[in-house]
């Protein structure tokens, strides 16, 4: 099932999450936004210009990605991997300018990767690698960062750590950060906006607005899981 009639717009400096049940099309939506798969129908607009009218190089300066697929070569060092984020701006050989090096350094510092920068990717834990991938997207210096399930395979602490980092990036760098997630409760607490794919209404708005609209109540079968609007969390029915 792929959700239909999805309408939303996100402003610079906002952290937004796409949430919903398994198989509803969260990742499909995100990958479509990131142009890794063709648009099935409808229109995507970045900075008042349809996405299809961007050349690959123009788009690479607007949208950066953090996907669920593993990096093909784990032999890349952290620094090399983050440096690849500067490709849209480098010459035909990929030579890094002083500005590129500065951006790489900034990305490394803001994700606290100083101690890891000379390690190879296969030496890192899942959480560390995810931070490296986010740093790469940050170094790409795009107006939008899209992340597909950035907190999967991480423990609670690292989930929170990543989401807080993303929130911080959105608020301080004025970039638009959009991610898909199953962590609805965390998204309610940390996100500025949420897209809730339920296949029918596909709500969009601030988390508190969605709670008021009782958007979360019907997400899961009510005999198993119910939503408590006071705490913004789900309760399991025993």
């Amino acid at each position: 099932m792929i959700a239909k009639n999805i309408n939303f717009g996100i402003e610079p400096g906002e952290l937004a999450a796409i949430v919903g049940i398994n198989g509803i099309g969260k990742s499909t939506l995100l990958r479509t936004l990131g142009s890794t798969q063709p648009v099935l129908s409808g229109c995507l607009v970045v900075k008042d210009k349809p996405i299809v009218s961007y050349s690959p190089l123009e788009l690479s300066a607007e949208i950066s990605l953090v996907l669920t697929e593993p990096v093909a070569s784990k032999n890349l060092s952290v620094q090399e991997l983050i440096a690849l984020g500067r490709q849209p701006y480098t010459n035909w050989l990929g030579t890094l300018s002083a500005n590129d090096k500065e951006k790489i350094k900034e990305a490394i510092i803001s994700l606290e990767l100083e101690d890891l920068q000379h390690k190879k990717c296969f030496e890192l834990s899942d959480g560390q690698l995810q931070r490296v991938m986010i740093a790469r997207a940050l170094a790409q210096d795009t107006s939008i960062i899209l992340l597909d399930e950035p907190t999967t395979h991480l423990d609670l602490y690292h989930k929170v750590q990543i989401l807080k980092l993303l929130r911080n990036i959105a608020h301080t760098t004025k970039k638009t950060v959009l991610f898909t997630s199953h962590e609805i409760e965390m998204a309610i607490q940390l996100c500025d906006k949420m897209v809730l794919l339920d296949g029918k209404n596909n709500y969009f708005g601030k988390p508190c607005e969605l709670i008021e609209q009782k958007a979360f109540e019907s997400l899961f079968p009510s005999d198993t899981v119910s939503f408590d609007p006071k705490t913004g969390s789900f309760r399991i029915k025993k």
């Binding site: 990605l65 990096v71 890349l76 490709q87 990929g94």
Partner: peptide, 20 residues
Amino acid sequence: IKPLNALLLGENYAKSLGVN
């Protein structure tokens, strides 16, 4: 050389880095 380096991340990443 440049696209080859981008391909080390995988095809989707390479594409998102502006590689044709």
